[in-house]
């Protein structure tokens, strides 16, 4: 016994949310060869089948690439600071991949350890996540290696698992999910089979062990050699969350804003004195892997990676985390 929803039912849901002035975002084909999570204008833009995953991640709906933190106004010697409108639009993230949804509970931690980032938290409260279990994977996918799977529940309020074309089994995981789906489901005897995930590629514990003890290893030199130092991996990663804070405006008024930033950029850690703790690309690559598989686990008890494979797919020179991780896993560093 299960509950199901049809594609029409999902379209109706999208339409209702949009009609109430709320935001709905989901995967959409923005052009040939480019699928992204975007705010939807209507259900016809929503892509439900025949794709692996969008090239961007869900994080931008909770932690946008650009965000105004507060405004300032200057008159003479005086300064006036004012809060900008806090996030208040409810949003539905629909047909998200489980590897994207799983990133949200992970990000909750860093945005809330000892002081809470209300910008993130507000959006999080206003968000309902409907995931769509994966029925296919590609060479870059490695969710199973980091303890997730094509139908991992983490971070989902509701999960859809494909039955026949145009029909989905619905699994409500939270109260939010249940109230979203209330009155929309039909009972059915069909139960979706558990989709197969990619084969396990490495053991995160081994990676952690390696990272801990090989800070000065020549391995990083060879890994960092072909990296070009762009931020494509970090910016499309569901869990990367580094940011920059700058002022934007003129001498009279403006706002302090935060923008995404990446540990792969050469200026990221450069001191005012000119000294740079991570002055070459191998050091920056090492930081990225260490942060995900050693530092974050040490701080928060879990890996800062959901195995989505975006870093590999989006890397212009085919590096990504996966190749590094599998090399470590296979002992190729030895």
């Amino acid at each position: 016994m299960s509950f199901t929803i049809t594609q029409d039912g999902l379209s109706k849901l999208v339409n209702e949310w949009l009609a109430r002035g709320k935001r709905v975002a989901g995967p959409s084909r923005v052009k040939r060869d480019c699928i992204l999570y975007v705010p939807l204008q209507g259900p016809d833009q929503l892509l439900l089948e025949d794709f692996i995953r969008p090239a961007n991640s869900l994080k931008e709906f909770l932690f946008p690439k650009h965000e105004r933190l507060f405004g300032y106004r200057i008159n003479g010697n005086g300064v006036e600071l004012f809060e900008l409108e806090p996030p208040k639009t409810e949003q539905l993230l629909i047909a998200a991949r489980p590897c994207d949804a799983a990133a949200l509970p992970i990000l909750d931690q860093v945005f809330n350890w000892d002081c809470a980032d209300e910008f993130y938290n507000r959006r999080r409260q206003l968000t309902t996540v409907v995931t769509l279990a994966c029925s296919a994977h590609d060479d870059a996918c490695f969710c199973t290696s980091v303890g997730l799977s094509p139908c991992a529940e983490r971070g989902s309020d509701v999960m859809l698992v494909k039955l026949d074309r145009g029909k989905y089994e619905v699994r409500c995981h939270t109260e939010k999910g249940r109230s979203l789906m209330e009155g929309r489901l039909e009972p059915s005897d069909q139960v979706a089979s558990e989709p197969l995930g990619p084969e396990k590629r490495f053991d995160p514990a081994e990676v952690r062990e390696f990272v801990k003890h090989n800070f000065a290893s020549a391995f990083w030199q060879s890994e960092g050699l072909t990296c070009l130092g762009c931020g494509a991996c970090a910016y499309t990663c569901p869990t990367c969350h580094c940011f920059d804070i700058i002022d934007e405006g003129n001498a009279n008024e403006g706002a302090r804003v935060r923008n995404w930033d990446s540990c792969q950029f050469s200026m990221f850690t450069q001191h005012a004195s000119g000294h740079n703790p991570r002055e070459n690309q191998p050091a920056r690559q090492r930081q990225r892997i260490s942060h995900k598989f050693d530092i974050y686990p040490e701080k928060f008890g879990e890996i800062l990676c959901t195995g989505c494979g975006n870093c590999t797919r989006n890397c212009p020179v085919g590096i990504g985390a996966l190749s590094v991780l599998t090399e470590i896993g296979h002992g190729e560093h030895l």
Partner: peptide, 24 residues
């Protein structure tokens, strides 16, 4: 609107060789 400023376009370009880019 979709640009996230990851600067992959700059980094892969063989002719964008400034040590410090104007945007920095």
């Amino acid at each position: 609107e979709r640009c996230v400023k990851c600067y992959a376009c700059r980094q892969v370009c063989p002719l964008c060789y400034c040590e410090r880019c104007i945007v920095e």
